[in-house]
Amino acid sequence: MAVTLTVNGAEHALDLPREMPLLWALRDALGLTGTKFGCGIAACGACTVLVEGQAARACVLAIGDVWGPVTTIEGLGRPEALAPLQRAWIAHQVAQCGYCQPGQILQAASLLAETPAPTDADIDAAMSGNLCRCGTYGRIRAAIHTAAREMAEG
């Protein structure tokens, strides 16, 4: 019983159980390893992807319940064609170990889609579900403001 998923613009028919979390379908079946496993219970945000532009925790989202096209970090931008958020992340040299950063960036993308000019309080509210054990929060906050400005200027 195949499940059809659209990931980063490409359609995939997957012969996998419908209850399998999207995280593992991406990582182990499609080889898209940019989406990370951190906790398995939606407590750390490392697995954050976009579904129809909205942040979702892939570790607890069954592939049978995916309601729209999925964007992972690989689809947001590529090394040779970066998204504004990725450029801002580089400008502020945000990543340290980097493991949580794909999830942080996609959570920020979801925030900016809804709130194009977020305040610090907006950022606190949107980003507090994304854990970073390196403590890069200050640079993440600065990068989100930078990306918001760049996206506003088009």
Partner: peptide, 13 residues
């Protein structure tokens, strides 16, 4: 600029 930064913001690290 850190040598690992590009890979870490594009999911390619």
């Amino acid at each position: 600029p850190r040598t690992d930064m590009l890979a870490k913001v594009t999911g390619t690290a």
